[in-house]
Design a protein around this nucleic acid. Structure first.
Lengths: 155, 155
DNA sequence: GTAAAGTAGTCAACGTGGTTGTCGAAACAG
DNA sequence: CTGTTTCGACAACCACGTTGACTACTTTAC
């Protein structure tokens, strides 16, 4: 009680800066591994597609954007060689979007890099602090904000 | 040691979800106070302008974007009535961007709302946990990652 | 004092990621 | 068979960012 609370606006700034620094480091490392053209939004989209593939409409639902926006992102991912479209034999309207080997590689590398970046935080703060940070955020974050609901926050 | 570490990708997701939930609540409350058209990026821009005003180039430098992008954002803020441009008598090239009373109101309200949102987190997690979360992030976030570097905002 | 260099703001063209609205084709419910 | 819903695509548009080019003005160097 002897110390004044920090101003409330610092909290979102710190959260954003932490998020942003992780994402920036991720893409620096991905670029060094040959994934130079990929952007943050693409990582979320690949995650939403998942190992079994998904339709464009389903991807949009998972990301919380319109099916048209999801379709455009799929177009770009396909042009970059990360996904491919295949006809769905059980439904002639649908086209299944699947990861290519390159897309899967990007996802695997990202997971490895994120693990390493988290380990850096553990090195700086200690395992307990990082675990507590994650635990606090899990408690305070509304379930609706998860698992993936991310419109245009990076560019 | 007996528990496995969570996957590294959860950390950025949690940070983003926390940030996003605060920003969403902020804008819900701002809308209820009459600031219905303002978007997250505008709040950052108003912060970058600050109580004494700034030139467009300076705003861009503080936000880490080009002067052209800053100029466009100022155009939109001016159209919404949050800022106004004035000639700088000491340098005929510069135009000083200043907050209007409405812009200042928005910033003051935002500060109040952020304080209240932080108090909500304190209520859920306890003051110590929130302080520790902020402290951890301050240690781990590189100084360059702060989107707005404005001396002396709100005390 | 003047010429060269640098800086502020604007305009234009463009890229990316989002939105609605519309539409044809296919699936489904009755 | 018919009406409704769903999927993917196309078009128009908006928000926010980028570069490059240009004018007007300031500052610096000689």
């Amino acid at each position: 009680m002897t110390e004044a609370d920090p101003p409330g606006y610092e909290l979102p700034l710190l959260l954003f800066a932490g998020f942003r620094s992780l994402i920036d480091e991720l893409h620096t490392e991905l670029a060094a591994l040959g994934h130079t053209e990929v952007r943050p939004v693409h990582g979320f989209a690949l995650q939403a597609i998942g190992p079994y593939g998904a339709s464009a409409t389903e991807i949009g639902r998972r990301l919380g954007v319109s099916k048209q926006a999801a379709g455009k992102t799929v177009d770009r991912l396909a042009a970059l060689g990360y996904v491919e479209r295949a006809d769905d034999p059980s439904d002639a309207r649908r086209k299944l979007v699947r990861l290519t080997p390159r897309g899967l590689d990007m996802l695997t590398r990202s997971a490895e890099i994120f693990d390493r970046l988290r380990a850096n935080w553990v090195h700086q703060l200690g395992a307990g602090q990082v675990a507590q940070l994650e635990s606090s955020l899990r408690r305070v974050v509304p379930a609706t904000a998860f698992p993936v609901d991310v419109p245009g926050w990076f560019g």
